[in-house]
Design a protein around this nucleic acid. Structure first.
Lengths: 334, 334
DNA sequence: CTGAAAGCGCTAACAT
DNA sequence: ATGTTAGCGCTTTCAG
């Protein structure tokens, strides 16, 4: 059995209150007793029981994080930032893989609520009414990452998707491309789908370049496979295209693979710009030019916001800056 | 304030013991009272406090996981398996990023110990004496993943690295290659480094093919950059090489990129086989033939072992099967 | 500067 | 079938 504060008190000939005081560095003990207590703690190998502490202090020192997929290239970078910042602030993080499943998500929220986590970070998923109600019942700070809610007043941290898509498309335009298409993800995804298409469209229109819906090839998701499948279709409809904006790096890499099989050279025949700047993107052939989202920083920021809300009951949403990473998948024309 | 079991008891006109009984499905209540209790629980929105429960039951319902890097492609797959299985078994997982730092690791172990986690999963790192002592003091099951300890009796789950390297090299040989080199990771890494070189050497020797130390190009690590840097050096020393075994997929992908820049075609000029079967490997051009490690399954297995040890105080280490994944980076000669 | 004692919310005897 | 009560290990008044 682990020694308790009682054992320490007894062995050091003081009361448990005194032990508690030196443990928490609260006023009310002499240097002498402090030494004695510290020493017997050492001797006994005493370790305070965080659970008992949590019961008294009504906090668990942990923050829950909900991902639709933990093994995603993207999630792991966000998680990295979350874990780092949380640890700095003295918190642990519990990860939960919701698999984008409604029931599972609800169960996880319930679980985290029972564990009395001090805050919640909700990544990449839309917040529906049930989730929101559960959040409210928990009464702890909740912050959204890579997503936002139009219905509920939940603070978020993300980039401006529309603007970022605009930046990507404009880069293609500035590089001299005039016939530009898009490999979209899921257009029904209001957050990552619709808005990126919007930005794409706006860039084209402002540059007085042709735009039509057929210029964007939609998919159900944002994966490598989606990229593989969608490139041929887009090119079949629009063989004149020289530049492509892919809604995710994975899609872009998939498109590059598909192009390779088709004997199309990147960037000589077709230029491609991605979105995300995953580690993946520098490993492709050719290295992928893309829009970087500061995933790690976003994770850190989310924790900072959770903690701010916990203290101040208020925190503003944060729209993080994206930036262009020029590599070799886009050719400058003339 | 969250309602407590007291509130429920009062509102339902029963004692807290009764509420506790229906909550834990222990014998000793009528259907009638059960209904009543359940209903008032519903009405009050009562959620049991897992911290209080933990204090009484002396368990936290959580398992700690230590990674040298959470954002690694590999870690995230292991984590996926860990999280899934842990959740099925009613446990949560706390992730810790040690950054392979000694002090940090020690602090994390201490922290998890204070949080009274019910078990520990230790991934990809060597266990030194201080770690081991800390494990012992904790008195909870510890299982190693993708690593093992020669000094301490800690159960592990991994593949047979030497054998897997042998398999990879043999595949090259069976494909008709006679001049084969290796892009090793860190040879001072006893676990992932040394053993893979061994397997490589053994395969060559058994096939009566030339082997010398200069045939293996060492690096400090197993990254993409290492692959980029090491390919040219190996080829400079041994321009006759037609087949290469890379000690990790990342190294392999790096080598492919380097080859591309050098105008060397894969697999026409040189064949490459990797090690890991990360998602990455199917996205490369050409898709990478590699040795698959069942990362997800390993994560699951680790949790199963932790739980087994918790109950039976015994669990055997598990050497998981690896297997070859044939894709397009190796050419069959003649 | 130090100790006694009252909880934190719950489980598990032990009564009834 | 149900209630009473003693903790689990700790923090925090409140007294001295």
């Amino acid at each position: 059995m682990n020694p308790t504060i009682q054992d320490v008190a007894k062995a050091a000939n003081v009361s448990i209150a005194t032990v508690s005081r030196v443990l928490n560095n609260q006023p009310g003990f002499s240097q002498k007793t402090k030494q004695r207590v510290l020493q017997t703690i050492e001797e006994l190998g005493y370790q305070p029981n965080a659970i008992a502490r949590g019961l008294v202090n009504r906090n668990s020192g942990t923050i829950g994080v909900l991902f639709p997929s933990v093994s995603g290239l993207l999630s792991s970078e966000v998680l990295h930032g979350i874990e780092a910042r949380a640890n700095e602030e003295g918190y642990s993080v519990i990860v939960c893989n919701t698999a984008a499943d409604h029931e599972k998500t609800l169960r996880y929220i319930q679980l985290l609520s029972e564990k009395r986590v001090d805050g919640l970070v909700f990544v990449s998923e839309e917040v529906d009414e049930e989730y929101y109600k559960a959040f409210q019942r928990m009464g702890v700070p909740v912050v959204l990452v890579l997503t936002q809610s139009y219905k509920y007043p939940l603070p978020y941290v993300k980039v401006d998707d529309s603007h970022a898509a605009y930046t990507a498309t404009s880069y293609l335009i500035d590089s001299g491309h005039k016939r530009i298409g898009m490999l979209s993800g899921n257009p029904n995804d209001l957050l990552a789908g619709r808005t990126r298409i919007e930005g794409f469209k706006r860039a084209l229109l402002e540059a007085e370049l042709p735009y039509s819906e057929s210029l964007v090839e939609n998919q159900n998701s944002f994966t490598y496979e989606d990229g593989i499948n969608s490139l041929p279709r887009l090119l079949e409809r629009h063989p004149e295209i020289t530049g492509i904006f892919a809604a995710s790096d994975e899609i872009a890499i998939g498109a590059i693979s598909a192009a390779y099989k088709l004997g199309i050279r990147i960037p000589e025949d077709i230029s491609i710009i991605g979105y995300d700047n995953l580690k993946l993107s520098e490993m492709s052939i050719p290295p992928l030019t893309t829009i970087a989202q500061p995933f790690q920083r976003m994770g850190e920021k989310a924790i900072e916001m959770v903690l701010t809300i916990k203290n101040d009951k208020q925190a503003e949403s944060s729209v993080m800056p994206h930036h262009l990473v020029e590599r070799e998948s886009v050719k400058k024309i003339k």
